[in-house]
Design a protein around this nucleic acid. Structure first.
Lengths: 342, 342
DNA sequence: TTGTAGGCGTTATCAG
DNA sequence: CTGATAACGCCTACAA
């Protein structure tokens, strides 16, 4: 499209050969004279010829494009993942088409629709907070579309999932707080319908149990939005209301953890002396705030790269879904800063 | 593609009509009997028919896809812009294909190549730090490809640019510092080949002049990377080396500003009492750190939306490049927090 | 009201 | 070594 986009036909006409010859010459097929090859390539260069990927897609029923569906781009973790996806996809010659659902289920569904229309070769998905029923995904899987889920993964049989070790990340964080002498540890949890949330809750509970601390459900507080404002309010109320005051907060999310730190400041409580705080994700700002926020680092870039690698291998039939026994789990790392050390 | 992707032909065959009839029926063309329309639509629904966007693209020489080229996704500001792009493009029925250059010129060029191959309808570009020669863009413009540049815009005649008012943002920030009584204000500038950097420098200088303060070039310090580490080192050295100590830092970037705050802490200087600090961009963390970082907010989402709107209008010939007299400039807003108030 | 034919750009297949 | 032809899925003059 556009004035002057040269096609194979143009080259063929100018050289008085057939388009098949040109096509073959350009791809160094055997059985084309060096002379012809040279001429074709020269002219192609001169005309600034570019293969039309659209025509190729139609011909091959492959678009060399993968569709990425995520909740939000404006999210440090997700943007890191995208970066990994981009990198891996590009290096293997695929394009990335992106949509964000803004945490809405219907946008998730309509994204799938447009992507299907666009004949993408496979999906990379992290589902929305609203998604509780995974029908729309399992239908795709049944139809044979390659999908790899990452981070926010569904519980569907045969789904290929890439996650970080949320359980262990959480377990480590809470164990660390306990070792630092914190005893009444509040967990600011995420929406219960996300596996990452429940896994982190499980890690939290197990860490308490492993250190002989009783589980108190009142100390597990849901922060569904995951913003600092929400958590600031919630934790502030908590600190004011509870007769036996908590002495630590473990956020399922750095924003939630920061909110807790701010609430402490509001109330004149010192972090880490009075209250210990640990977050999850290791956003950039963790090292910039004072005190530095301890956090569980998640390898976002690698998650994106790994998920993409799996997806492309599935697409190119280098592996079969059955070969992937269980979910891929990437390691987390607890980064200890001042907010949790006393 | 994929087992069972129904096509118009499938519907036609099953209904014993021609594919043109089906095509027309599906689009409610005049001159198709209601009966046929009903039958066609019913079957289409049943077969889960989806128009093949690839075939459409080939037919129409339009892909309904726009290409976005940005330096980095992992950048709060850019992710906000992407969000705006996404929103506007989707609402108008376009797909977004994304590549990041990682600030490399050759990746910028190869991105253009793949996108051209993919027959995208237009480009949305924020160029890399390495880009000093805009030949590869002006060539595209000459060939008639619609391009809208945003934030990092080139100096090319006839280019359609969307920026924020960097000059005024900078002018306001520095004026504010002066009003607060700061006198020796250091500007942590960005790479000089970016227009946004030079505009911010211009705003800085003019604000000083407007308040009768002499310009001292030694107080304009380049922080090319724009990371907090870089700026922390740079500003620390500065604070230690200068006989007459600066009393404020204006970062062309929030990371740079934070670096300066950290350097102050390193040296036992108090912000804002001893040193005032203002950043640019208003990243999320500005309100989370202590003291809160004053910053010039840039409307990233709107920038993305506006740039996309212009691009799509250009593509759809609703406007001509000549109609856009000058660059579109969006307003900035100075958000004053504790870091600059004494 | 419906059908036929041609073409968007490319390549695989079959001939020569 | 090279050419002609058909096909990917869709749309649209033109014809009937």
């Amino acid at each position: 499209m556009k004035i002057g986009q040269a096609t194979i036909k143009d080259i063929a006409r100018e050289l008085n050969v057939s388009s098949s010859t040109v096509s073959r010459a350009l791809k160094d097929y055997p059985g084309i004279s060096d002379e012809t090859k040279r001429k074709v390539k020269e002219l192609a260069e001169k005309l600034n010829y570019r293969p039309n990927a659209i025509a190729l897609s139609l011909r091959k029923s492959r678009s060399f494009t993968i569709g990425v569906i995520i909740p939000e781009v404006v999210h440090f973790f997700f943007s890191t993942v995208i970066s990994g996806i981009e990198e891996e996809a590009n290096s293997r010659g695929y394009n990335v088409i992106l949509t964000q659902t803004n945490e809405k289920l219907d946008r998730e569904k309509s994204s799938i629709d447009t992507m299907l229309s666009n004949q993408i070769d496979g999906f990379l998905v992290s589902h929305s907070k609203e998604t509780e029923d995974f029908e729309h995904f399992s239908k795709l899987l049944d139809q044979g579309y390659p999908i790899v889920f990452f981070d926010r993964v569904p519980q569907i049989p045969h789904a290929v999932n890439v996650t970080v070790d949320d359980y262990k990340g959480s377990f480590d964080a809470v164990s660390h707080l306990i070792q630092q002498g914190y005893k009444r540890i509040v967990h600011l949890s995420g929406p219960k319908n996300l596996t990452i949330s429940t896994e982190r809750i499980r890690g939290y509970k197990d860490a308490l149990l492993a250190h002989g601390i009783e589980i108190n459900d009142a100390l597990i507080v849901e922060c569904p939005l995951g913003t600092d404002d929400e958590s600031r309010k919630t934790t502030r109320q908590l600190l004011e209301a509870m007769e036996e005051r908590p002495d630590a907060f473990f956020g399922n999310n750095d924003m939630a953890a920061v909110g807790a730190m701010l609430a402490c400041k509001d109330l004149g409580l010192r972090v880490p002396e009075d209250i210990g705080v640990v977050g999850f994700s290791n956003w950039q700002f963790c090292s910039m705030i004072d005190p530095g926020l301890s956090s569980v680092a998640q390898p976002g870039f690698q998650m994106g790269a790994k998920a993409t690698q799996l997806l492309l291998d599935l697409i190119e039939k280098k592996i079969n879904p059955e070969d992937i026994k269980e979910s891929i789990t990437l390691p987390t790392e607890l980064l200890i800063r001042k907010s949790s050390v006393r």
